[in-house]
Amino acid sequence: MLAQRSGGFSLIEVLVSLVIISIGLLGAASLQLNALQASTASHERTLASGQVDSFFEGLWANACHAWEGDGENRHLSPEVVTKIHTDWFESAQDQLERLESVESSVQQGAQGLVSVELNWVTSTMMSESEDPVTARVIHTKRILDPRGACS
């Protein structure tokens, strides 16, 4: 005679469902970790970008003193741009303290083009066994000659 089966789940069915749920939860945790890493990297990049923009604001504020020469020979003074960059980078250290190994450089081009590069080491996208990853923000802007606007 056949025994009647009760209405519950067998132990195997419960274990299989627990394995499936565990795999799903591990996937969800992995997605959360990736989202947190991306959010941190985005925050770092936004912070760095804002600080580079503050350098350009300082340069624009001093544009009357940054240009030198006459006529076709007018150009941005490398000494003034370098001094403003050095002062900015020193004052920005408080804002950039979250970033590791921060370095910055400034380059000048023709017709008032100025490019600032800010590099830092980010630990958000690496495990302990990986080499550090360098993140970079580069902004290039034209500083217009304020001829006649300066008194």
Results as ranks from 00 to 15, higher is better:
Val116His: 02
Ser54Glu: 03
Ile23Gly: 12
Val80Leu: 09
Arg98Val: 10
Leu113Cys: 00
Leu59Asp: 01
Ala35Trp: 05
Ile12Glu: 00
Glu128Lys: 11
Thr86His: 01
Leu26Ala: 14
Glu68Met: 04
Glu79Ala: 13
Gly24Arg: 07
His65Met: 07
Glu100Arg: 15
Leu36Trp: 03
Leu47Val: 14
Gln107Arg: 11
Leu15Met: 07
Ser101Val: 06
Gln108Glu: 15
Asn119Ile: 10
Gln32His: 08
Arg74Ala: 15
Ala110Leu: 11
Leu76Trp: 04
Asn119His: 13
Gln111Arg: 02
Thr82Val: 09
Glu97Val: 12
Asp94Glu: 14
Ile84Cys: 00
Met125Trp: 04
Ser105Tyr: 09
Val19Ser: 08
Thr40Leu: 11
Ala48Asp: 05
Glu68Gly: 08
Leu26Pro: 00
Leu26Asp: 00
His43Asp: 05
Asp87Trp: 00
Cys64Asn: 09
Gln51Gly: 06
Glu100Ser: 15
Glu44Ala: 08
Ser77Ile: 01
Asp53Val: 07
Thr124His: 14
Ser42Leu: 12
Lys141Tyr: 07
Glu97Leu: 11
Leu99Ala: 15
Val52Asn: 04
Pro132Gln: 00
Val137Asp: 02
Gln95Ile: 01
Arg98Thr: 08
Ser129Gln: 05
Gln95Arg: 10
Gln37His: 08
Leu31Lys: 09
Phe89Ser: 04
Leu25Pro: 03
Asp131His: 08
Ser54Ile: 03
Met125Tyr: 04
